[in-house]
């Protein structure tokens, strides 16, 4: 976490990724040109409100976008190799070995007509070929133990498990082949807080044990604060801010990030929820300029015309907002504050 950025090497590069859904009234720009790197061994959080394109972004990375969705542009580079346009059989051999998924809604993510062991076994056999039955059994039992499940789960069907147990089966499945990257798509959101805690701890434990790179998608800011190294805030298909988690919580720069963090309920005081003010634009027809202009409390004329480029306001903290400008000497200035001070 404290390593310098230069020393780390990115395992996944996402460049200008666009995923659109086709509708009779035009394309929904679910993911509209996102950029980020995922470094080896790090956990990147991807947060944002429902419908902002978090899960779609994950599907874009996994090359699992299904019609009416399509990848409209951009690049996904896994260890330097582009995933886009790879034929399906090539993709299939990469899947789960390089990119594993802990699905959203683990309640229904397991095949109801297959035993837990068979569902873990099939992915092992698909990628490593047939193995001795005894070896596979030992391996699956070990995986179940890693995620804190008892051995009797091995022979059980999904409907015999609780939600938290199913989610942990999914985690065990995700680490079965020691993947390079795990994408956890709202892995804990369908669970109550107690089970959430157990699953989150399991995830942390697994991550520390394997040193795997992880993208955690979610909207629980509190959970994110504890789980991730860096955090990317998404709004309406774009990443508006990306920063080390401590920096983002201590000093969120983008107005949307500020609102998100303010919205975390406090035990000490009751405060009005600000984030609901304003409306989100029609995702088929985004306004010119900044994507957040309709809800932004600091909106300026410039925001309605020019889309803000990403600006590194602090090492590792990139914000897409006209409020911040680079001075000639390379220092950063907050336009709003600067105007107020002089």
């Amino acid at each position: 976490m404290t390593e310098s950025k230069e020393a780390r090497h990115p395992v996944l590069k996402v460049r200008d990724l666009k995923v659109y859904y086709e509708t009779p009234k035009g394309d929904v720009l679910a993911v509209d040109g996102i950029n980020f790197d995922l470094y080896e061994g790090e956990t990147l959080g991807l947060v944002g409100e429902s419908g902002c394109g978090k899960s779609t972004a994950a599907m874009g990375i996994l090359q699992l976008v299904v019609p009416p969705g399509r990848i409209a542009g951009g690049e996904v580079l896994l260890e330097g190799h582009s995933l886009l346009g790879l034929p399906e059989n090539m993709l299939r051999s990469i899947r789960w070995i390089k990119l594993a998924l802990i699905p959203q809604g683990a309640m229904n993510s397991l095949n109801p007509t297959m035993k837990v062991c068979d569902q873990i076994k099939d992915v092992i056999i698909a990628h490593e070929g047939k193995r001795a039955r005894k070896d596979i059994r030992q391996r699956i039992l070990k995986l179940l133990a890693t995620v804190g499940l008892p051995g009797r789960v091995y022979d059980m069907y999904p409907h015999e498990l609780s939600g938290g147990m199913k989610q942990r089966v999914c985690i065990a499945m995700a680490i079965a082949l020691n993947p390079t990257i795990i994408i956890a798509d709202e892995a804990t959101s369908a669970l109550d807080v107690v089970v959430q805690r157990i699953v989150a701890q399991t995830l942390l434990k697994v991550k520390q044990a394997l040193g795997v790179s992880m993208i955690m998608i979610g909207h629980d800011m509190g959970l994110m604060a504890q789980m991730v190294d860096r955090i990317a805030v998404m709004y309406a298909g774009k990443i508006v801010e990306i920063a080390p988690v401590a920096d983002l919580f201590a000093n969120p720069r983008h107005p949307y990030s500020q609102l998100l963090i303010e919205s975390i309920p406090s035990l000490k005081e009751r405060k009005p929820l600000k984030i609901t003010e304003g409306i989100t634009h029609d995702p088929r027809n985004p306004p010119p300029g900044c994507i957040f202009q309709l809800r932004c409390p600091f909106v300026m004329d410039k925001c309605r015309v020019v889309a803000p480029p990403g600006l590194e306001v602090k090492p590792g903290q990139i914000v897409a907002c006209h409020l911040y400008q680079e001075n000639k000497d390379g220092s950063m200035v907050n336009v709003a504050n600067a105007a107020g001070n002089t």
Binding site: L62, L64, L91, R92, S93, I94, R95, W96, I97, L99, A100, L101, P103, Q104, G105, M107, N108, S109, L110, N111, P112, M114, D122, V123, A126, H127, C170, M173
Partner: peptide
């Protein structure tokens, strides 16, 4: 449209296997 189909595809299984087993 079930979630487990999504996961089955992400797992990179043989499509014929997914067809009959899932």
């Amino acid at each position: 449209g079930e979630d487990y189909m999504h996961l089955a595809r992400a797992k990179g299984l043989n499509p014929f296997y997914v067809l009959y087993r899932y």
